[in-house]
């Protein structure tokens, strides 16, 4: 199975994860500072800044796009509960 390396800048930890993993699943396990609320892509609490490797995440769904737009999020912001890793290197930190 393809793997990806996700680095959480706020705590200085890189985690090797299987492709398809959502950022929030990893963040929660290592105790990174990404907060979450609904975990269903609606509340916007888990907005996360993608510092590097945005192309290594699956494209946002229509729902995620709408929530990001409603929250006036910049282009480097994703919802950790929705964003799935595809492979390669990804660096993130809490927005």
């Amino acid at each position: 199975m393809p793997k990806a390396n996700v680095t959480f800048e706020d705590i200085g930890i890189t985690v090797t994860v299987p492709a398809g993993t959502r950022l929030i699943e990893v963040s929660e396990k290592v105790g990174a500072g990404i907060l979450y609320g609904c975990r269903e892509g609606e509340c916007g609490t888990c907005m996360t800044r993608i510092v590097q490797g945005a192309a290594n995440l699956a494209e946002p769904s229509v729902l995620e796009d709408r929530v990001l737009k409603d929250n006036l999020a910049g282009r480097d912001i994703r919802l950790a509960c929705q964003a799935q890793v595809l492979g390669g290197e990804i660096v993130v930190r809490p927005a």
Binding site: I13, T14, V15, V26
Partner: peptide
């Protein structure tokens, strides 16, 4: 950590 000199850790999710 405060001074940015902490050694970066790499772990496998399976180990978590």
């Amino acid at each position: 950590h405060l001074t940015g000199r902490i050694e970066k850790r790499i772990i496998d999710m399976a180990a978590l």
